[in-house]
């Protein structure tokens, strides 16, 4: 790649490694995280808060769905006498029905957490065109 037809000066190849770039205070980047600047601390805190919020929301959903059953059954005894296709409701819920719910919550969380991390990575460490490995989306489940 020497000179091009439009007459602009030839491009130079710049060797750039993110761990050699000092923290810049206008654009947050990996250097901020490494050096523990205020921006870096804010960045990692925001990621942690987002992740924890997602986790606690999923945990609340899972706990509400599963742990509400004993209270409901204790307060409304009629629930315990329901049968589904000849099987007691307790057997259907505890034996089979709760497992798909648990897995669905886990699957939703897994997707969302991966997206959060991908977005965070794109924010602080944008993909570089000269490195084909960078910025590739994460593998699917």
């Amino acid at each position: 790649m020497d000179a091009d037809e439009t007459g602009r000066p030839a491009r130079q190849l710049v060797v750039w490694r993110p761990d050699q770039v000092p923290a810049q205070h206008d654009v947050p980047g990996p250097g901020d995280l490494r050096d523990g600047t205020t921006t870096g601390r804010l960045l990692i805190r925001s990621l942690m808060r987002a992740q924890l919020g997602l986790s606690l929301m999923c945990l609340a959903v899972a706990l509400t769905v599963t742990a509400s059953f004993p209270v409901i059954a204790a307060m409304v005894p009629a629930v315990g006498r329901i049968t589904v296709a000849g099987l007691p409701l307790t057997l259907v819920v505890l034996g089979f029905a709760l497992y798909p719910v648990l897995f669905a919550v886990g699957w939703f969380y897994h997707r969302q957490a991966r997206q959060l991390e991908t977005r965070f990575t794109e924010l602080v460490d944008p993909p570089r065109p000269e490195d084909p490995a960078a910025g590739r989306p994460g593998p699917d489940v």
Partner: peptide, 19 residues
């Protein structure tokens, strides 16, 4: 604590940050 938190919560894709 800040270093440890960074290590635990930073995605591995963010390059060359932890020592």
């Amino acid at each position: 604590v800040e270093q440890v938190m960074l290590r635990m919560h930073l995605p591995e894709k963010v390059s060359a940050v932890s020592p």
